[in-house]
Write a protein that binds this DNA or RNA. Structure first.
Lengths: 338, 338
DNA sequence: AGAGTTACGCAAGGTTCTTTCGAAATAGGC
DNA sequence: GCCTATTTCGAAAGAACCTTGCGTAACTCT
């Protein structure tokens, strides 16, 4: 039992460093060298670590054995199923993209057709990378709508065909690994924290400005789904100006849109008191500085000096967030001691 | 190091059971009897466990040694500093109230006088229980306003004298143990989850209906403070109908008040998607079923079947929440392995 | 009073981690 | 080209801790 703890701690340290020496690793973990070596043997047996050739170096003394994390031991797949397209990223365990795939999708297609398109896209994506399905360790998918704990789309305003569809169950049949389904705005929030505008910020609200504006919320670095997966749907309240935002955008400029949306964004800022708000979604891709405009209109309505910034991941944020969620799942499983 | 883990696990099991047998305890922890005994010796040395006389019983065989958690090893103090009064609860480590103290407070008193009144109340409360100040293991205080991470009152609308006062620092000088300061609505939420309307509910919003209506939020059973301690202050937005609620109540009935407040409560329900909303505060104590009225007006504005119920702790919720927060702090310290 | 039952207490045994010490492998200097 | 200094490896001894097992103590029931 204690060995498992040590193996997990060693794995964590190994991932943090690049190609550490055995002695360096032992120092970082806080264990003795023989113990660390034993943990590494265990990790190597599971395919997660391997020894690499010692660096030709200017260092004095006997060359140290070096180890590295085998990021190619498994892969994570992130899928965005938007209204009118799919976007997939396949990454190794370090989150490096191995293969990407983008395809159009009819926005009025029935759920079965959408699912078939997703399955085809998955085949194409992992086929292009030359990776077998068994090497997938986790899959996550993001789509608009309220997703319940079982991965069923409980409510979806923008894609009515989607509503009630058991997406998690259906996708789970295609894979032997865990499959997670999550709301698109939630995933975008995760992605922006991972490698976007909110790097290492623990409390983030991501505002997805689209046909219907929703939000994804991270609290303490963790996704906040809410009891029924509907957290962040402040846009449902008409008085807050987040409904039918796309239609408003067509008639007015970015500044007027921001003024209209400001109460809704402020409501979320006041409710969560996040460190920052990231603004993304289709309406920000169309041009014009919506984030900048919101940064002028929202703070006067709030108490705290919350930062407001534009998304840095553009239309890739949902798929990247799905990858991150899949990687999180993998890491949880790897680090689990019992 | 392993001994600490075992001691913590044994302590947890000991608190869960009443007066368990050594063998029962070993079975519950999953360790062998000698190991459990060793952990108990360590706990007894720290004053946290003690052996009790074997029960005279109908059981066959040699009587088993029984142990119990020494709840009187330390005490927690919870303080409510409301606008016009103070309320204190002193409890043992099991949360049983040992002493209570209630005193009036001038609502226009300057901060220094308020602090002096609190200090006098603390003396009276622990004096009545015959407990020394050194036996206090943690103190928590609740008061209106936005409290920052250092325990300073960053913003307070209902008690202007309070604003900017370093309450945590000042109170810390009176005690040798940790002192925590927290917003009153936050503490009320904690209390209702502990022994009120939201027992064992992990995602709770507590609506404190008072002169200015604020909210306390629990996510995953843990208090959500926000980056600057201002979470739940949706009431700041004028359109949501939570401002100057007390003044409105004087002119209208409960039903009209609920209709006015509904968008504000709905905004929080939509933002957090909690399992339930607990309604409390001065406006509910005045009579009339505000929670029932809100239960009619709020759900039509929301997506999820969030329950709405009245507070069960009345005007004691803030002080009880303070006690719970202090106890949480103590437990964290006790269970900390490293 | 004796049999049966239950739990205690001590000792032996087995893991696992840490410490320690000699050997190995390389760079730099004479 | 050889020797020394430096750094790390590899294996064995040692310590800490948990578990298993067995004899004994204490109490109830017949």
């Amino acid at each position: 039992m204690l060995r498992r703890i040590n193996a997990a701690a060693t794995l964590r340290a190994l991932r943090g460093a690049g190609e550490p020496t055995l002695t360096e690793l032992a120092g970082a973990v806080g264990l003795s060298r023989p113990t660390t070596e034993g943990a590494l043997v265990e990790l190597a047996a599971r395919g997660l670590a391997e020894e690499v050739a010692p660096q030709q170096g200017k260092r004095l003394g006997r060359p140290a054995r070096r180890y590295r994390f085998r990021a190619e031991a498994g892969y994570a797949l992130g899928v965005e199923i938007a209204t009118d397209r799919t976007l997939l990223f396949l990454t190794d365990l370090d989150g490096h993209v191995v293969s990407a795939h983008r395809a159009a999708l009819a926005d009025d297609a029935p759920a079965r057709d959408r699912l078939a398109a997703v399955r085809a896209a998955v085949r194409a994506c992992i086929g292009a990378a030359g990776i077998g399905r068994k090497q997938l360790w986790a899959v996550a998918a993001g789509t608009p709508g309220v997703i319940d704990a079982e991965g069923t789309i409980a409510y979806c305003r923008v894609v009515p065909e989607w509503q009630g569809f058991e997406l998690g169950r259906e996708m789970g049949r295609s894979f032997a690994c865990p499959v997670v389904v999550e709301n698109d705005a939630n995933l975008a929030a995760v992605a922006e924290r991972w490698r976007g505008a909110a790097c290492d910020v623990d409390d983030v609200v991501y505002v997805l400005a689209g046909p219907h504006t929703g939000a994804g919320v991270l609290i303490g670095g963790r996704l906040h789904r809410g009891r029924w997966g509907a957290a962040g749907e402040v846009g449902v309240l008409p008085v807050l100006g987040l409904r039918d935002t796309a239609a408003v955008r067509e008639r007015t400029g970015v500044n007027a849109l921001a003024a209209r949306m400001a109460p809704g964004v402020a409501a979320m800022v006041l409710a969560f008191d996040p460190e920052m708000v990231v603004v993304g979604g289709p309406l920000t891709l169309a041009g014009g500085d919506l984030a900048g405009a919101l940064a002028r209109h929202v703070p006067p309505l709030c108490l705290s000096p919350t930062r407001i910034a534009a998304s840095e991941l553009g239309d890739e944020s949902v798929a990247l967030g799905a990858v991150r969620l899949a990687l999180d799942r993998i890491e949880t499983d790897l680090m689990r001691v019992d």
